[in-house]
Write a protein that binds this DNA or RNA. Sequence first.
DNA 1: GCCTGTCAAGAGCAGTGCTCGCAATTGTTG
DNA 2: CAACAATTGCGAGCACTGCTCTTGACAGGC
Lengths: 258, 258
Amino acid sequence: MNDPAAAAEPILRTPRERARAQTIADIVRLGREHLATQGAAALSLRAVARDLGVVSSAVYRYVANRDELLTLLLVDAYSELGDAVDAAVNAVPVRDFDGRFKALGRAVRAWALREPARYGLLFGSPVPGYQAPSSQTTTPGTRVIYRLIGILDGAYRAGALTATARTAVVPSALSADLEAIRSELGLAMPDELQANGALVWTSLFGAVSFEVFGQYGPDTFRARGELFEHHLTVLAAMAGLVPEGNPRDDPKSAATPV
Amino acid sequence: MNDPAAAAEPILRTPRERARAQTIADIVRLGREHLATQGAAALSLRAVARDLGVVSSAVYRYVANRDELLTLLLVDAYSELGDAVDAAVNAVPVRDFDGRFKALGRAVRAWALREPARYGLLFGSPVPGYQAPSSQTTTPGTRVIYRLIGILDGAYRAGALTATARTAVVPSALSADLEAIRSELGLAMPDELQANGALVWTSLFGAVSFEVFGQYGPDTFRARGELFEHHLTVLAAMAGLVPEGNPRDDPKSAATPV
DNA sequence: GCCTGTCAAGAGCAGTGCTCGCAATTGTTG
DNA sequence: CAACAATTGCGAGCACTGCTCTTGACAGGC
């Protein structure tokens, strides 16, 4: 996103366009810094203009309004989180599904703790009066969940998912939702595993949010890293993943891993 | 909180004190309405003053500043959520631990969907520049988790908790945290069940937050009630709870309920 | 009945988002 | 190279915010 040599970026011919793109990039960078120090609600175009060394109204030549800057920052943050998750997952062998899942979880937590304000913009209470334009935010905003689904579905296809028997029954309306997702994304997982995957997804972000937003008291948990690792282990088991070196040939042979 | 006949409230002797208490109650009520419609960051003392039919500076006679109003609203919301959860849990027989847990979860979700802005104030991204005074907020803010712990620990003491064998090992530093909690609250549950309970806690709020904050896309899940019920079922099983009519005499006899 | 504490009012400071007209710069083009 | 036109910056201005301070009015307790 902030790399001027990004492959997908269109070539900027005229020096005017280049200067303009550079200024917008500067605005996003300054906005990101302000977001990190003061939070989304305190994001001020005037302050950005000050740091940019320009009068406030000049910023409106580049960004339509405060909401558009928020959208830029949203896309920027989603992309960075997606990049961090991709890098962490790709560092683990493709067949180590359990390891890939845990790498994803750790990457999300690490990024969130490193960038609490930006994490809050993505997964905290919605900014009042701001509605993210889905045309620009859905693609970068779905990278993590798609990656998670990919790991789980890959594990299922490889016969490495277990624990199907102990899940709850999926009722019909929910089953229709899951079928729609399955066909749209070309998944193979059955309803129960998909529903469990959804719970794993929300639980992962629930655990991270509690830590980032300070919902644990200041003293109740000191070993938060260990707590998160424990949660990851339980969540992986809930999804049906088994640790490396403990593969199962037939996912239906037994429902209860040890 | 908003009940003038609350038992713990001190008796207000002079008419002045009574008028003052009434005005503060009005301010909190108006603040709550503004919170519901515009969100926490847009909460404005001037707007409250306008609705109160008074000049803006007059509000400062009753509330020190915007942060103090936020604190009042925080306590107010925590108390209402706690009351809703208590009422829902108390409506289920004491020995039906699984039912009580699910009632707690449903009460949290129902209140959150009914009061999204106030839920966001409690469990969303922290308000920038505002630090909740723990002396006033911890007691009402811990009611739900204490209630949850009470259900789980009661189930454990009654021999109604299972699934101890399939949990992950708890490392030493985390074990020390859990031991501190155990002794402070007088719990009986072992480490693994406590750690699982923490995950159930964060997962419950993770699921609710995703729904309230609109993290699911607008169309991906239509049957959100069914999805939440499924999650509750899986979380109950993760905590070791078994549905009513399926009691176990010895929690250590088997680790895998069907 | 007087004094004291409480209260509302209003001006004022510093900040916010955003608009508009004017001037200057700067890239493009004849 | 010079003229044109697009682009950009500036500053004033409107309406809003939180918050402070001074002034004056009022009511309760001695």
